[in-house]
C-alpha cells in the first residue's frame, strides 16, 4: 500500500450529477476554448494549454470532456521523476497531459494545444551535452583499446 490512492476510503459526496452545471461553466465552454486555441495555433500563434487542476469541475464534467475529445493516435509516457502520460485526443493537436510525481500522485494536469507537446522538444544545450557525452565515450573506448 504505497500510494495514497490505495487506501480505501469512502467519501459521501453530494450528487454531483444532479448538480451538473452548478459548479464551473461546464464542458461546452472548455471545448469552445480548445477550438479557438486550435484556430490560433493554425494561424501561427504559440501553443497554449488549459489547466485542468485549477478548473472547478465536477467529476461528471471531466468524464464528459474526455468523451467529447475522444482518443487519438499517439500516447507518450515520460519517465522523469515519476511517470507522465501525454495522450493525443481524437482531435489532432490536442494533448491530454498528466504529470505524476514519484508516488504516482498527479501534480499537474492540462490540455495542451500544440503540434508536438513542448516538453518533448530537446533544447540545444542538451544536444551539445549529448554529443559531448558520446565523444567522451568514444574517447574512452579508443584509449582502452
Amino acid at each position: 500500500m504505497s500510494r495514497l490512492g490505495d487506501i480505501p476510503i469512502r467519501i459521501e459526496r453530494p450528487d454531483f450529477a444532479a448538480m451538473a452545471g452548478t459548479i464551473g461553466g461546464g464542458v461546452t465552454a472548455i471545448l469552445a476554448e480548445i477550438a479557438a486555441l486550435l484556430d490560433r495555433l493554425a494561424a501561427g500563434d504559440e501553443p497554449q494549454a488549459i489547466d485542468l487542476k485549477s478548473l472547478p469541475m465536477n467529476p461528471g464534467d471531466r468524464e464528459q470532456l474526455i468523451e467529447a475529445l475522444g482518443s487519438g493516435e499517439v500516447a507518450i509516457t515520460l519517465y522523469a521523476d515519476g511517470e507522465s502520460t501525454i495522450r493525443e485526443t481524437g482531435v489532432h493537436g490536442v494533448w491530454w497531459t498528466e504529470h505524476r510525481d514519484g508516488d504516482g500522485e498527479v501534480t499537474a494536469a492540462f490540455i495542451e494545444i500544440a503540434r508536438v507537446p513542448g516538453i518533448l522538444i530537446v533544447d540545444s544545450d542538451e544536444l551539445q551535452r549529448g554529443a559531448e557525452r558520446l565523444r567522451s565515450a568514444i574517447g574512452a573506448t579508443r584509449s582502452s583499446e
Binding site: 489547466d51 487542476k53 485549477s54 515520460l78 522523469a80 521523476d81 515519476g82 507522465s84 504529470h99 510525481d101 501534480t107 499537474a108 492540462f110 516538453i119
Partner: peptide, 9 residues
C-alpha cells in the same frame, strides 16, 4: 519542467 509546471498551476 514538470516540477515548475506543477508550481505554475
Amino acid at each position: 519542467i514538470k516540477y515548475c509546471t506543477a508550481m505554475a498551476s
